[in-house]
């Protein structure tokens, strides 16, 4: 954790010192904000992905399981959260549930009080709904014969999934999943509408004080850096997952 804070301070100092000559009036006041927002966007993305991914696997397994109740529940979850705009979901959770207050939400209130955690919850739910569909697609594409062979050799359902089906399903689903992570990064900009100061939130705050369109151009550059880095990382994982001979 210390390392992370040091990295933030280092980035803030070094990058901003380097940028100041480019536009002294703009960067003197706004550079630190940009860097802050940049890191908040990364945090949101990383945490939502790390929680959303296993959640999505669980949902996909439920969807493909023989239990019709589990399958229907998983289907409805995906249907609702894929069928409504992320912006509406954010506003339902932040302004809608938030209006119920501490008395209405009880123990859940600490989670809903904080805009950052509401943003994180909604992003996680949203990405898990989309990812579940993608992983389900991977699971049904694993040849049936392998399943039968696994069952015939005495493996339990869980062992079959863990050892045979999921490793192949994830390999099949990875390119589509990478795309979803990229969409999540872009979608995360919407948390700025519920007062979270991510990269987009900082950008809009700086714009509100300066009315300078340059701000948006710098924000685009930062998002290009983020999505570029993300694409390289996801491709690297894809290569690592690839089996020899494929």
């Amino acid at each position: 954790m210390d390392f992370y804070f040091d990295a933030k301070i280092w980035a803030s100092d070094t990058v901003c010192a380097a940028l100041r000559p480019v536009s002294p009036t703009l960067f003197a006041t706004s550079c630190g904000r940009f860097i802050d927002g940049f890191f908040v966007s990364i945090e949101l993305l990383v945490i939502a992905t790390l929680i959303g991914f296993p959640l999505a696997i669980g949902l996909a397994l439920a969807r493909t399981s023989r239990s019709s109740i589990l399958s229907a529940l998983s289907y409805s979850y995906s249907y609702v959260f894929r069928g409504t705009p992320l912006l509406v979901q954010l506003w339902i959770f932040y302004y809608g549930f938030g209006a119920l207050g501490a008395s209405g939400l009880g123990l859940l209130w600490p989670l809903f009080r904080d805009a950052y955690s509401v943003g994180l919850i909604v992003l996680t739910i949203n990405t898990s709904a989309y990812s579940a569909e993608i992983i389900r697609g991977g699971i049904v594409n694993v040849p049936n014969g392998q399943l039968e062979a696994a069952v015939a050799s005495g493996m339990s359902w869980w062992t079959t999934m863990r050892r045979i089906v999921l490793p192949q399903a994830l390999r099949i689903a990875w390119p589509a999943y990478s795309n979803e992570v990229l969409l999540l990064l872009k979608g995360s900009a919407l948390v700025s509408t519920i007062t979270v100061l991510d990269l987009m939130g900082q950008t809009r705050t700086i714009f509100a004080r300066s009315y300078s369109l340059d701000i948006f151009v710098y924000a685009v550059i930062l998002y290009l850096i983020l999505s570029g880095g993300l694409t390289v990382l996801l491709r690297w994982i894809e290569m690592r997952m690839r089996l020899p001979g494929y």
Partner: peptide, 18 residues
């Protein structure tokens, strides 16, 4: 400091206890 896009949104967060 939390910044809101509209004043009404700020009021509702004051009332919500945020």
């Amino acid at each position: 400091v939390k910044l809101y896009d509209t004043q009404t949104a700020a009021y509702s967060d004051l009332e919500a206890g945020r």
